[in-house]
């Protein structure tokens, strides 16, 4: 993994799935995170669906690590905040005037589990799908190519930004710039570092735009893709089922809330 991409190259069934099938799965995860009523259901979905999919995609370690890194701090902060401040009858312990309750703990963990399910779906999509494939799948379904290009460039520009920032740092150090810690020193580094990075990037943009136009980027003709995304009737059916399940879950949640 480097820069803006978290895609991990593997040879697996999950990787071979059509990107939109995985988008539909992610949509179901978001709907489940919003609609499922309690912690056991959310954990069951994570353990019963997302984890097996990660194993199938040979991404278990990276998937669990990313989940832990992102959700871990939320689990900690949410359980502390909810535990102390959302009220409840069963006091587990007290810290001065503040009581930590079992109901609060459960509310915090449930909220964190909702995040885990939503994030898990997104992570599986991003770790198993190259961004160009995702954008290609979307543009083939009518997503504007210009927006797809902007999104892709924004993601892919990070590695070149990192490389350029390193060269700029080298160049300024070679001119006697000391890299010291401390807020004031860091502020002093800002202009010599950011100035060339921004100016250079602005100049790159105009050159990139001209290079794209020279290769007929805005031609109205239907573009031929070198890469064909494998799809099948079964996958289309699964996509529809996943989308319907996501919609049904949200409608059920809405109906229960209105009761």
């Amino acid at each position: 993994m480097r820069g803006g991409s978290i895609y991990i190259e593997r040879s697996s069934g999950l990787h071979w799935l059509h990107p939109l099938t995985k988008v539909a799965l992610t949509a179901l995860c978001f709907a489940s995170a919003a609609a499922l009523p309690g912690l056991p259901w959310l954990l069951a979905l994570f353990v019963g669906l997302l984890l097996p999919l990660a194993i199938w995609g040979r991404l278990t370690g990276a998937f669990l690590k990313a989940c832990l890194l992102v959700v871990g701090p939320f689990v900690l902060s949410l359980t502390i905040i909810q535990g102390f401040f959302s009220g409840g009858e069963t006091v587990l312990f007290k810290l001065g005037r503040f009581a930590f309750t079992q109901e609060g703990l459960l509310a915090g963990l449930t909220f964190a589990a909702r995040l885990l399910v939503a994030l898990g779906g997104t992570l599986l999509l991003m770790q198993s799908t190259p961004q160009p494939h995702l954008m290609q799948a979307l543009t083939e379904r009518g997503f504007p190519p210009r927006i797809a290009y902007v999104v892709l460039t924004a993601i892919q520009i990070f590695p070149s930004f990192q490389d350029r920032a390193q060269v700029i740092m080298d160049a300024q150090q070679a001119r006697g710039l000391e890299l010291q810690s401390g807020l004031l020193n860091r502020a002093r580094l800002l202009l010599p570092m950011v100035g060339p990075l921004i100016l250079g990037s602005v100049m790159d943009v105009s050159e990139r735009a001209m290079a794209l136009e020279a290769r007929a980027f805005s031609s109205p003709a239907r573009k031929t893709s070198l890469n064909t995304l494998a799809d099948s009737l079964l996958q289309r059916a699964v996509r529809w089922l996943l989308a319907l399940a996501a919609a049904a879950l949200l409608l059920w949640r809405l109906w229960s809330a209105l009761q």
């Binding site: 080298d170 160049a171 070679a174 006697g176 000391e178 010599p192 060339p196």
Partner: peptide, 23 residues
């Protein structure tokens, strides 16, 4: 010695001038 200290003895012209100009 740090790079900044060595800059007293060794000057370095990088390939791309735009990697250093900001003033």
């Amino acid at each position: 010695h740090t790079t900044a200290a060595l800059a007293r003895r060794v000057g370095f012209l990088f390939q791309n001038p735009d990697d250093q100009l900001f003033e």
